[in-house]
């Protein structure tokens, strides 16, 4: 019995109350090299002290604009990028010290946005899906048999698709293959990095239905990274909003969409195009572009675009503070005694 199977059967410490994933103070700064000698001239704080938990069986949506660090976070979680610091605990065990990265990747798999770039153009569909199990020592016949099962699971007829090459498939079909490939190692946690962003609406709905079905039938946990607030609202149980590498707000999906506390979250939500011709958006919620992550602002990263910014926002970065049950926001207005004129009175 492999470690992942043991984990699958809930034999880890803590039982069902134990979060499947715990992330603490995760940091990744990319140096920008320049000049003749390749010295570091600047750094991009791609992920800057991110912390969150994912419970067993839930879907955590991560939203934000380009450069907010959501995709870097996804890659850090599965160690495609080495973090500079911070801790990731999978099923209660610290990755790197208590369980090796190889073991982590048995329990965590990833689906990428670009369905074409994430399949090797020279491998048939069945070889791509069987690759992971083959690497793990599964015999070829068994791995191929399993690949056919998975193809059926994601709604593709193996007789028609198994021997095809990626360029012979449509975008939606390729994304189904990518999902099958990620499932081949029987993970418990699937990290979905913009999995439907490149798809047409009618195909997007098919893939979302598939993801919901698979989650139920396989008891999966999802981390769903997307810039599309509609899709995130549809699929997530909890939502984390990121801005320039930090968590702006995190909470249950209803709380985020009905009672957002961070001005950035509210701006994001009101920037969604209205579907009602009689109630078109009349005013842009915030002006300007997201700042360049190479030279981020001081204090609260959002203060340059925030309508409520005050002196304290420029000088001090607000910590993520609890607002309500399981709902936290990193805004001085939510921190009692922060010095902001609209701060909640101290309890």
């Amino acid at each position: 019995m492999s470690g992942a199977e043991a984990l699958r059967q809930g034999q880890e410490a803590g039982g069902p109350a134990q979060p499947l994933l715990q992330v603490r103070a995760l940091k990744k700064h990319f140096p920008i090299r320049g000049g003749m000698l390749g010295r570091t001239v600047a750094t991009v704080n791609a992920v800057d002290g991110v912390a969150f938990e994912v419970a067993k069986g839930e879907t955590l949506g991560i939203v934000g604009e380009s450069g907010c660090g959501k995709s870097t976070t996804a890659r850090l979680l599965i160690r495609l990028i080495e973090p500079d610091s911070g801790e990731v605990r999978f099923a209660g065990q610290s990755v790197g010290s208590e369980i090796p990265v190889a073991e982590l990747r048995h329990g965590v798999q990833m689906v990428f946005q670009d369905s074409f770039a994430s399949l090797n153009p020279r491998l048939t569909i069945e070889d791509s899906i069987a690759f992971g199990p083959r690497v793990r020592g599964v015999a070829e016949a068994e791995a191929v048999h399993k690949a056919h099962d998975l193809l059926r699971r994601v709604g593709l007829d193996p007789a028609q698709f198994a021997r095809r090459y990626p360029h012979e498939l449509s975008g939606g079909q390729r994304q189904r293959v990518n999902i099958a490939r990620a499932l081949a190692l029987a993970p418990r946690l699937l990290i979905l990095d913009e999995p439907v962003s490149a798809l047409d609406k009618s195909v997007e709905a098919q893939v979302l239905n598939l993801l919901v079905d698979l989650k139920q039938s396989l008891g999966l946990t999802y981390i769903f990274v997307s810039h599309d607030l509609n899709v995130v609202q549809y699929i997530s149980d909890r939502v984390m909003v990121m801005y320039l590498g930090r968590v702006a707000e995190i909470g249950p999906v209803e709380a985020i969409y009905r009672d957002a506390r961070h001005p950035y979250t509210r701006a994001l939500l009101s920037a969604m195009p209205s579907m009602d011709p009689d109630r078109r958006t009349q005013e842009a919620p915030i002006a300007g572009d997201p700042p360049n992550p190479i030279n981020p602002p001081s204090g609260c990263l959002f203060h340059t675009r925030c309508p409520y910014a005050e002196a304290v926002c420029q000088s001090t970065a607000p910590a993520l503070a609890p607002v309500k049950d399981r709902h936290s926001a990193a805004c001085h207005m939510e921190i009692a005694g922060s010095g902001h004129s609209k701060a909640r009175p101290a309890a």
Binding site: E65, S66, H227, L229, A267, L268, A271, M272, P273, T281, Q282, E283, A284, P285, I286, A287, D289, P290
Partner: peptide
């Protein structure tokens, strides 16, 4: 990005 899209549309 979403917050920029709405500005351009308007």
């Amino acid at each position: 990005d979403a917050t920029v899209q709405i500005q351009i549309l308007l």
